[in-house]
């Protein structure tokens, strides 16, 4: 059946929940393109015949042409949805992607990601009164400026932005500015205590 492969690509993305990036299905895309090529060649041949008087072929030609257009739409949708997901990754993970994610991207997608990164960085540098502003921090306004954290490992001394140094020792609890802690929480050194 025409179009079966193309819809399979869409389904594949649909099945992966939001924020996930499945591996780039190169094989599927190639098969769809081959199908399109075959359709196009058959159409070419039939058009030539139709010109020479076989008017009964016209409906078949129209049908093939619709299939062609549909396949194109599916592929574009597939690629576009992936781009949206990749863009979301930049906001979530920061500029360096984990290897597992990078592995799932095609070379073109990689290039697009780099360019996006560049333009975002240029923009962020240009705003904020000459100092630049990191837009990826605190996308939603935080409930409080400070959070309570617990130290899971002996980390040693840690300097916060007003110049004071605190000692992060296992099982000590601290009440610190939120944005200073986020990095350490991601690294698994601190744990956010919810009370």
């Amino acid at each position: 059946m025409f179009g079966e492969k193309a819809i399979e690509l869409i389904r594949e993305l649909h099945r992966a929940s939001d924020g996930q990036l499945p591996a780039f299905n190169e094989d599927g895309i190639r098969q769809v393109l081959e199908e399109m090529k075959a359709l196009y060649e058959q159409n070419q041949a039939d058009v030539n015949e139709a010109k020479s008087g076989h008017s009964e072929l016209i409906s078949t030609i129209k049908f093939r042409h619709c299939s062609l257009l549909r396949n194109r739409r599916c592929i574009v949708a597939y690629l576009y949805d992936r781009l949206l997901r990749i863009r979301a990754l930049r906001w979530e993970y920061g500029s360096v992607l984990p290897n597992a994610v990078r592995f799932h991207m095609s070379a073109e997608e990689m290039e697009w990601f780099n360019q996006y990164k560049k333009s975002l960085a240029t923009y962020m540098r240009s705003i904020g009164g000459g100092e630049g502003l990191d837009l990826t921090q605190d996308i939603k306004p935080p409930k409080s400026l400070y959070i309570e954290v617990r130290c899971l490992k002996d980390y040693g001394e840690f300097e916060i932005d007003d110049g004071t140094i605190i000692l992060l020792k296992k099982n000590s609890q601290h009440f610190l500015p939120r944005w200073k802690c986020e990095q350490l929480i991601r690294q698994g050194i601190l744990e956010h205590v919810l009370s």
Binding site: S144, Y146, S172, F175
Partner: peptide, 12 residues
Amino acid sequence: FQCDHVQYTLVP
């Protein structure tokens, strides 16, 4: 301390 944003460190 949490209501008034007093930064503290707790050591048992």
